[in-house]
Simulated scan of single mutants.
Amino acid sequence: MLDILITIIVIAALVLAWIMLYDSNRFVVRTHTVTDRRIKKPCRAVLLTDLHNKQYGKKNERLLAAIRAAQPDFILAAGDLLTANTKDSFEPALHLMRSLAGDYPVYYAYGNHEQRLAAARDVYGDMAERYEAGLGSAGIEPVVNGHCNLPEQGIVLYGVEIDMEYFKKLRPEAMDPGYLPGLLGQAPKDAYTVLLAHNPDYFPQYAAWGAALTLSGHVHGGVARVPFWGKGFIAPTWRIFPKYDGGVFREGDAVMVLSRGLGSHTIPVRLFNPGELWVIEFRPLTEP
Score class of each variant (00 low, 15 high):
residue 148 C to V: 15
residue 4 I to E: 01
residue 117 L to Y: 01
residue 265 H to S: 15
residue 134 G to E: 01
residue 267 I to F: 14
residue 54 K to N: 00
residue 41 K to E: 15
residue 287 E to Q: 13
residue 10 V to N: 07
residue 34 V to R: 00
residue 100 L to N: 08
residue 15 V to I: 12
residue 199 N to W: 06
residue 97 M to C: 14
residue 73 D to A: 13
residue 7 T to K: 14
residue 63 L to Y: 06
residue 192 Y to T: 00
residue 219 V to R: 03
residue 205 Q to G: 10
residue 79 G to K: 06
residue 243 K to A: 14
residue 217 G to R: 13
residue 149 N to R: 12
residue 155 I to D: 02
residue 234 I to W: 07
residue 98 R to Y: 11
residue 252 G to A: 02
residue 226 V to P: 01
residue 141 E to N: 15
residue 111 G to P: 02
residue 254 A to W: 10
residue 52 H to L: 03
residue 27 F to K: 05
residue 179 Y to A: 02
residue 161 E to G: 02
residue 158 Y to I: 05
residue 153 Q to I: 13
residue 176 D to L: 09
residue 55 Q to M: 13
residue 204 P to V: 01
residue 213 L to A: 05
residue 174 A to R: 06
residue 83 T to S: 00
residue 72 P to F: 06
residue 103 D to R: 12
residue 36 D to M: 08
residue 46 V to D: 04
residue 170 L to P: 01
residue 32 H to A: 14
residue 194 V to A: 00
residue 126 D to T: 14
residue 81 L to E: 00
residue 33 T to R: 15
residue 219 V to L: 02
residue 85 N to E: 09
residue 32 H to M: 13
residue 183 L to M: 04
residue 33 T to P: 05
residue 140 I to H: 00
residue 74 F to K: 06
residue 272 F to S: 04
residue 276 E to F: 10
residue 215 L to M: 05
residue 128 A to W: 09
residue 106 V to W: 03
residue 28 V to A: 09
residue 101 A to T: 01
residue 222 G to Q: 10
residue 267 I to H: 13
residue 149 N to M: 12
residue 89 S to V: 00
residue 33 T to W: 05
residue 253 D to A: 15
residue 48 L to M: 11
residue 241 F to M: 10
residue 83 T to K: 02
residue 43 C to R: 14
residue 50 D to V: 01
residue 155 I to S: 04
residue 130 R to Q: 15
residue 226 V to A: 11
residue 158 Y to F: 13
residue 47 L to R: 05
residue 70 A to P: 08
residue 54 K to V: 07
residue 241 F to L: 13
residue 100 L to F: 11
residue 207 A to C: 09
residue 174 A to V: 13
residue 251 E to F: 11
residue 235 A to F: 14
residue 114 E to P: 00
residue 185 G to W: 03
residue 87 K to D: 15
residue 220 H to E: 04
residue 107 Y to E: 08
residue 166 Y to P: 10
residue 86 T to A: 13
residue 89 S to Q: 08
residue 254 A to M: 00
residue 103 D to I: 06
residue 137 S to K: 14
residue 207 A to F: 05
residue 271 L to Y: 04
residue 146 G to F: 07
residue 180 L to A: 08
residue 204 P to I: 01
residue 99 S to G: 09
residue 282 F to N: 05
residue 27 F to M: 07
residue 229 W to A: 14
residue 63 L to M: 07
residue 129 E to Y: 10
residue 125 G to Y: 06
residue 273 N to W: 10
residue 256 M to P: 11
residue 218 H to Q: 03
residue 222 G to H: 08
residue 112 N to I: 07
residue 186 Q to L: 11
residue 134 G to V: 13
residue 103 D to N: 09
residue 218 H to S: 03
residue 145 N to I: 05
residue 83 T to Y: 03
residue 21 L to H: 12
residue 42 P to W: 10
residue 46 V to Q: 06
residue 114 E to M: 06
residue 21 L to W: 11
residue 98 R to A: 14
residue 225 R to C: 10
residue 228 F to H: 03
residue 237 T to Y: 00
residue 283 R to T: 09
residue 153 Q to W: 10
residue 211 A to K: 11
residue 283 R to C: 14
residue 149 N to G: 12
residue 254 A to H: 15
residue 91 E to K: 09
residue 239 R to D: 10
residue 70 A to M: 05
residue 270 R to P: 08
residue 42 P to Q: 09
residue 118 A to D: 12
residue 17 A to L: 15
residue 154 G to H: 15
residue 197 A to Q: 08
residue 155 I to W: 01
residue 248 V to F: 04
residue 123 V to C: 08
residue 86 T to G: 12
residue 197 A to C: 11
residue 288 P to N: 11
residue 94 L to K: 03
